[in-house]
């Protein structure tokens, strides 16, 4: 596909998620955590939000998840401004946009069985009841490579990587279009990290899932996301195709990030 064609294709589809000149400041603090951020997430074009601590990555993610309201600008879902009080729209939104967290230890309720954890979006969004949820849960668990009997066990019986698989099963059980992931592999060991990256790539490929990933790990970003936005102190300093942004950085901050990645010898 030539770059021209690709650009045209980009323009014709309505973005699933869109941030339009969004800013957020917390009460009592003068400087905004996020300022003048405009981003678009189109189906099939996974987006990485790259930056270091204090860059505002997590705040952006909360805005994209409808967990926080911007102090300026608009968050749009399927072209409509996201209204956190509009129950009907929020239900559609939650069904279409799910999330995986960084820490697989605190993201699973220790007192619930895995089956109930994975079924939660189905039950809460009214997609299935206790009986009809079971086969969907089993399917979701199988999809992420966990044994069927996992549903009867508790989170503590699983390793970090397996827990992250459970979290991914929960986030994909209601067949969302967008998966927001907050540093989904940074708490995992290297060998496990590769496997979870593979799983996410597979879900992208086979289920047409679009990823929006917050990460500081450029190799993971390069493995999974077509597009990259680089954040520094609450603002986007550079965004575009990942190959271009990371391969030929235009902004000195991006260059510094790329150069800082430790490489294996040889």
């Amino acid at each position: 596909m030539t770059p021209v064609l690709e650009t045209r294709a980009l323009e014709t589809t309505t973005p699933v998620l869109e941030l339009d000149d969004v800013a957020l400041s917390y009460r009592g603090s003068a400087a905004p955590v996020v300022r003048d951020v405009s981003l678009t997430v189109r189906a099939g074009h996974s987006l990485a939000l790259v930056g270091e601590s204090g860059a505002g990555k997590t705040t952006l993610l909360r805005l994209l998840l409808g967990l926080a309201r911007p102090t300026a600008g608009t968050v749009r879902f399927d072209g409509e401004p996201l209204a956190l009080r509009d129950r009907e729209q929020m239900r559609r939104f939650r069904r279409g946009v799910q999330c995986v967290f960084q820490d697989p230890y605190s993201s699973l309720d220790p007192r619930r069985r895995v089956g109930a954890i994975v079924a939660e979006p189905l039950r809460s969004l009214g997609i299935a009841d206790r009986r009809t949820a079971a086969p969907k849960v089993a399917e979701a668990l199988e999809r992420v490579g966990l044994p069927a009997d996992a549903a009867r066990r508790y989170p503590h019986e699983f390793s970090g990587g397996q827990r992250q698989r459970i979290a991914i099963a929960r986030a994909t059980v209601c067949e969302p279009r967008v998966l927001l992931a907050d540093e989904p592999v940074s708490a995992l060991d290297v060998t496990t990290r590769v496997k979870i990256v593979d799983l996410l790539a597979e879900l992208k490929q086979e289920r047409g899932l679009t990823l929006v990933m917050v990460s500081h790990d450029l190799s993971v970003v390069a493995s999974l996301c077509e597009r990259t936005a680089v954040l520094e102190r609450g603002g986007v300093v550079e965004q575009g195709d990942t190959a271009r942004v990371l391969g030929d950085p235009a902004h000195p901050y991006t260059r510094r990030l790329v150069d800082s990645v430790p490489r294996l010898p040889g």
Partner: peptide, 20 residues
């Protein structure tokens, strides 16, 4: 071997993309 392969796999993603 597994450790090195995993590390290389992730790193190689960066190489492919950064080819100018």
């Amino acid at each position: 071997k597994a450790l090195v392969t995993s590390a290389r796999r992730l790193e190689s993603a960066l190489d492919l993309r950064s080819a100018p």
